[in-house]
Amino acid sequence: MNNGSPIIRVRGLQKTYHTSDVPVQALRGVDLDVAKGEFLAVVGPSGSGKSTLFHILGGLAAPTDGEVWIDGEDLRRMSDAERTEMRQRKVGFVFQKYNLLPTLTAKDNIAIAQSLAGKTTQPAGFERILEELGIAHRLTHRPRALSGGEQQRVAIARALVNEPAILLADEPTGNLDTANSEAVLEILRRLNKSIGQTILMITHNPEAAAYADRTVTMRDGRLS
């Protein structure tokens, strides 16, 4: 792959939900380029389609129409099974609600993401990432014993363990207080700078968006 070409390339992306009687057009022609190593913030009103875009970029949902390229692969040509595989290798998700498995320790929550991707050894430098996240000493605890901030940092570690091409964070600070929000945002920025991690982050908070290199706004299923 040519280094100059974007790691995410979206053209005319449309997504229509047919779950109810009335079809919902969540995305109405999204165009987006994200360069490798970029930290992008996505803002916009509720219901504008931000999460829907992330779900498609992450291979959790199929596009209705349009082009989507992730790290040189064409999503439109992918079967469900191939999209599943892409989630293992290329994408790391971080959610507003942390979404750790409650029965597993922090360590095992990270290990299961690895195991699902068929990997057994942690990437070089992962120890340092854990140190940077400040959770190295909390790894034997179950989520219930961790604070929200700690849980979110474990979730970030889990998203990074398979060295994804892109990290998709959907309102990662939405459930956190100011201090923890700042810590998490600082960590995202450091990851972006130190290992060149490409990050897309949805947020409602302009201060949070300020941590990113660039901000795009979603309105009625379109980016501006």
């Binding site: 599943t84 595989e85 989630r87 293992q88 290798r89 979404n99 299961i112 993401a113």
Partner: peptide
């Protein structure tokens, strides 16, 4: 859902 997001088949 979490497992699926992590790439579980």
């Amino acid at each position: 859902g979490i497992l699926k997001a992590l790439g579980a088949k």
